[in-house]
Amino acid sequence: MIDLVTGKPPAATRVVVAMSGGVDSSVVAALCAEAGYETIGITLQLYDHGAALAKKGACCAGSDIHDAHRVAEAIGIPHYVLDYESLFREKVIEDFADAYARGETPIPCVRCNQTVKFRDLLDVARDLGADCLATGHYVQRLMGPAGAELHRATDTTRDQSYFLFATTQTQLDYLRFPLGGMPKTEVRAHAERFGLPVATKPDSQDICFVPNGNYADIVRKLRPEAGEAGDIVDLTGRVLGRHKGLIHYTVGQRRGIEIGGQADPLYVVRLDPEARRLVVGPREALGIAATELSEVNWLGGAVPPEGLAVEVKVRSTAAPVPARWVGGEVRFDSPEYGVAPGQACVAYAGDRVLGGGWIKRTVSALADAA
């Protein structure tokens, strides 16, 4: 039995569940209803309904809206669909294209949580008089000495805490994550127990609004200049060849550079969109000593002291590495690889998310040592 609002009986508690049409959020809705909460399901239509229907394996697509409605009917709760297409395009899709045009590596799922789901949807839940908003994210909300804390999920293979670093304390106070302490196998078992029509539905893959995972196509359509060819240069600026458009490359990439006759493999070190140049070099040139952050969100209580020892992740799949938090900058204890502007840098203390920010600028370990 799940306990969402301490000190208030479920029958007197109204819960809004963000239903994407997938198995995770469907199980959350079913668990809430089973526990006796007054449960309301809300699904956001985020992009073109017709195109979405044809996209398999996405979240918030047209077929998923239909699935969410079927689940709501099966468990006997009201279900509403809200049209957020314009807002999603402005705050997420356009931002995604702009970031690629700037030579960055964006994470649209974080922007979606930051702008649409955990801001506007949360406001809708409050307008409906709900006591909390529940989602199917794999992350834990635990109570600490100073209030609600954000922690990694117990199932480390499903943990989504990296994508929720921008959650504010006010939002965290209102949010609930019933699946944070469950492995995926248990969630699937609940779906079968409830007889949900999505019990065997595959997990969503790729970015929801990018057909077939081809980022370049959508960026080229929205920002044609990002697809223009230019020079490939080494660290000294010497021209080595031509690239087919910066949108096809990310920092750390090795394949697709297509420069022969080199003694050592070449990697993408950075992108220079103003000059339309792709800068390449040896693997050691990818080592990063520090990174400057923007839009920092801190959940670790008071403002962190200078030089606070933390563990940070610069990619969702990366293992946390030791670093120092110095103002709006993170300094790695050892050179970190695969760090790119536009990604998120998230700080942890054990399993607890302390905060994070967007990587704005990086400092090469080679330059730092010079």
Rank of each mutant, 00 (worst) to 15 (best):
K360S: 15
L235T: 12
E85M: 00
R111G: 02
A229P: 02
D155H: 13
D368H: 06
D98E: 12
Q114H: 15
E149D: 11
D98M: 09
G76Q: 12
D120R: 10
D206C: 01
D24M: 13
L354H: 01
P305I: 01
V280P: 05
R188Q: 05
V296A: 02
P145E: 14
L133H: 05
S294H: 03
R119S: 11
S161D: 11
A226Y: 07
L222F: 01
G328S: 08
D234I: 07
V251H: 09
R119A: 09
G62H: 06
L87D: 12
A52I: 05
A52C: 02
R283Y: 15
V17E: 13
A191M: 11
H66Q: 14
E192C: 06
E85N: 04
G357Q: 04
R254G: 15
L366W: 05
V139T: 15
H137N: 08
L44V: 01
V92I: 14
V92T: 13
Y80T: 13
D67A: 14
P78R: 04
G355Q: 05
S20R: 07
V339F: 06
L164G: 00
A35H: 10
I42G: 00
A101H: 05
G181L: 04
H137K: 06
S204F: 15
L278I: 10
V303N: 04
Q140W: 00
A148R: 11
L128A: 02
M143F: 09
D231W: 02
H69V: 04
G357H: 03
V353G: 03
Y337K: 07
T250H: 11
L31Y: 08
R361F: 00
D173A: 04
P273V: 01
D203Y: 01
R276P: 00
P211H: 03
T115Y: 11
P108E: 09
S86A: 15
F165G: 01
C112D: 08
V81T: 14
V353H: 00
E94R: 08
Y100R: 10
L82W: 03
W298D: 00
E329I: 08
Y37G: 03
I107N: 14
T168C: 13
V339T: 09
V269K: 12
P183Y: 08
Q343A: 09
W325E: 05
Y100F: 15
K55F: 07
E73M: 04
Y80I: 07
L31G: 12
I42Q: 08
G237F: 05
L87A: 06
K221R: 15
R158Y: 08
G144F: 08
L278D: 09
H248V: 03
A275H: 12
L299H: 00
P335N: 05
L179C: 06
A199T: 07
P10A: 12
N113D: 15
E336R: 15
G355F: 03
V239N: 03
